[in-house]
């Protein structure tokens, strides 16, 4: 799939400023909007928030995967953010989330969207991967970890 291996360096936020769920959604959405022309930050934020309202994407083990489909967007994009202090995210295990992957996809590429979510899920199920992501010192080290994925 190579979704994670090909993450853009500009879409890696090693130190998130956000301290709340809403702030982190804003911060990730803003980063994506900067890189992709024609995306509206408020629309993207709302889509992510609507998805969270159906059920938190905080899947436990410090991980959150906010995601959504957006009309008129031409590709699949991911953005990674890390919060060393952790952010309360209504996660399944009730613990704060530290590692955030934002996934957005066009509204009509339903199939690959499903694959991308599965890829992220597989990647993050590995406890070693999670702890390496937490320990990486800078974007380059993070990038190296991502590049090693299949």
């Amino acid at each position: 799939m190579g979704l994670i291996a090909n993450i853009k360096k500009d879409l890696i936020i090693p130190e998130l400023h956000a301290t709340s769920k809403k702030e982190v959604l804003h911060e990730l959405a803003a980063a994506v909007v900067k890189q992709y022309q024609g995306l509206d930050e408020q629309t993207l934020y709302q889509i992510l928030l609507d998805r969270e309202n159906l059920g938190s994407t905080g899947i436990g083990d410090t991980v959150a995967l906010p995601h959504g489909k957006i009309k008129g967007f031409g590709e699949i994009a991911i953005c990674f953010g890390r919060s060393r202090d952790g952010i309360a995210y209504d996660a399944l295990d009730g613990k704060p989330a530290h590692l955030f992957f934002l996934l957005i996809a066009p509204e009509d590429t339903a199939t690959s969207y499903l694959n991308c979510l599965a890829e992220l899920s597989r990647f993050l199920k590995n406890a070693q991967t999670r702890s390496r992501l937490m320990q990486a010192a800078d974007p380059n080290e993070l990038l190296a970890i991502f590049a090693q994925t299949e």
């Binding site: 994407t57 899947i59 436990g60 995967l65 995601h67 399944l92 339903a110 199939t111 969207y113 499903l114 694959n115 979510l117 599965a118 890829e119 992220l120 899920s121 597989r122 199920k125």
Partner: peptide
């Protein structure tokens, strides 16, 4: 036809556990 789950194997779908 056209629904995201069509063509997917059960294994593919199991990887979504946790998120869905």
């Amino acid at each position: 036809a056209g629904q995201p789950c069509v063509g997917k194997s059960l294994q593919d779908l199991r990887d979504l556990q946790g998120i869905y």
